[in-house]
Simulated scan of single mutants.
Amino acid sequence: MSPGPTAPVAVGTPLLADFSLEMTAKDVPRLEEAAALIPAGTRVNVTFLGNEDLELRRSAARAVRRLGFVPVPHLSARRLGSRDELEGFLAGLREDGTAEHLLVVGGDPATPHGPFADALSVIRTGLLREHGVRHVGVSGYPEGHPAIEDTVLWSALTDKHAALAAQGLAGSVITQFGFDVDPVLTWVEQLRERGVEVPVRIGVPGPAGARRLVTYAARFGVGTSASIARKYGFSLTNLMGTAGPDRFLHALAARYDAGRHGEVKVHFYTFGGLRATSEWIAQFR
């Protein structure tokens, strides 16, 4: 018997075969707890938070490598106080053998702490390649950014990838997490129409308490509480349960077309729940 129209579509292997995870520099104990559940060689992004210093970030990237995964340190342009600070960070990663993959973001501060106003200004220094960086990820915002116009976002994204290509650096895009597949895949199509053919890692919230999901979404300007509740299947009057990305991933698998969307993978934002996310992925796959 063929499945009915509401039967879930199996999530294709390409989408989950090479997923990546997110952690903070303080999450090393959580990563160690979850390590046995995570496939060897998985990319693990290490965020660049304002309350974590350089040594803590370096130590976290070293731990990712020690556990058999690929460290992808973040670099927040607006949090850098000087060019020397940038060079010191890159030199430390190179010394540790963790510099090959890097994610460069603009960062949260409204006013830059130093000379770098955005990710593009960091890329244009030429220092990344000099310090052994070979793969550079940048951010994408399928549902927009609360403080930046769409035209500016698109221009910045295409300029960053042109700058990376000019320096012979491989590029990729990691999107902000979302709850609705349609605007995400529409955005990917628009990216391809602009001639950007690099891999895209679609941001997905890992399993988390419903209240936490709504809080994070509000912080990053992703959708509204009502739309999140509808898409994740929980009630705003009862935010004590846990929601997982099942619906999102099934919808992504159903709508994904390699011919239109190119190379697409999944990136899980764990919100500190590395073990919970890793267990969920293992069971879901």
Rank of each mutant, 00 (worst) to 15 (best):
M1D: 12
S2W: 07
G4K: 01
P5T: 11
A7Q: 13
P8A: 13
L16D: 03
L21C: 04
M23Q: 05
T24G: 14
T24V: 09
A25H: 01
K26C: 10
D27Y: 07
V28Q: 05
R30G: 09
L31G: 04
A36C: 05
A36P: 00
A40E: 11
A40D: 10
V44T: 11
N45K: 08
N45T: 08
F48R: 08
L49E: 06
R58H: 14
R62W: 00
A63T: 06
L67I: 04
L67R: 04
V70L: 13
V70C: 00
V72Q: 13
V72R: 07
H74L: 04
R78G: 06
R79N: 08
S82T: 11
R83E: 09
E85S: 15
L86S: 09
L93R: 02
D96H: 07
H101W: 15
L102Q: 03
V105H: 04
V105S: 05
G106D: 06
D108P: 01
P109Y: 08
T111S: 11
P112L: 10
D118H: 11
L120T: 09
I123P: 07
T125W: 06
G126I: 10
G126K: 11
L128R: 05
R129S: 14
R129V: 14
H131R: 01
G132E: 04
H135M: 14
V136D: 10
G144D: 03
E149G: 14
E149N: 09
D150N: 13
V152P: 00
S155D: 11
A156V: 08
D159S: 15
A163N: 05
A165M: 11
A166W: 06
A166L: 14
Q167E: 10
Q167C: 09
G168Q: 08
G171M: 12
G171P: 00
G178I: 12
W187R: 08
V188S: 09
E189T: 15
Q190A: 15
Q190G: 15
L191E: 03
R194D: 00
G195S: 02
G195R: 02
I202T: 08
V204D: 05
G206Q: 03
G209P: 05
R211I: 06
R212I: 12
R212F: 14
R212E: 10
T215Y: 13
A218H: 12
R219I: 14
G221K: 09
G221M: 12
T224D: 06
I228Q: 03
G241W: 02
T242D: 02
G244W: 03
P245A: 06
F248H: 02
L249P: 07
H250G: 09
L252M: 05
L252P: 03
A253C: 05
A253R: 00
A258N: 01
A258G: 04
R260C: 06
G262E: 03
E263D: 15
Y269I: 15
F271R: 01
R275F: 12
A276H: 03
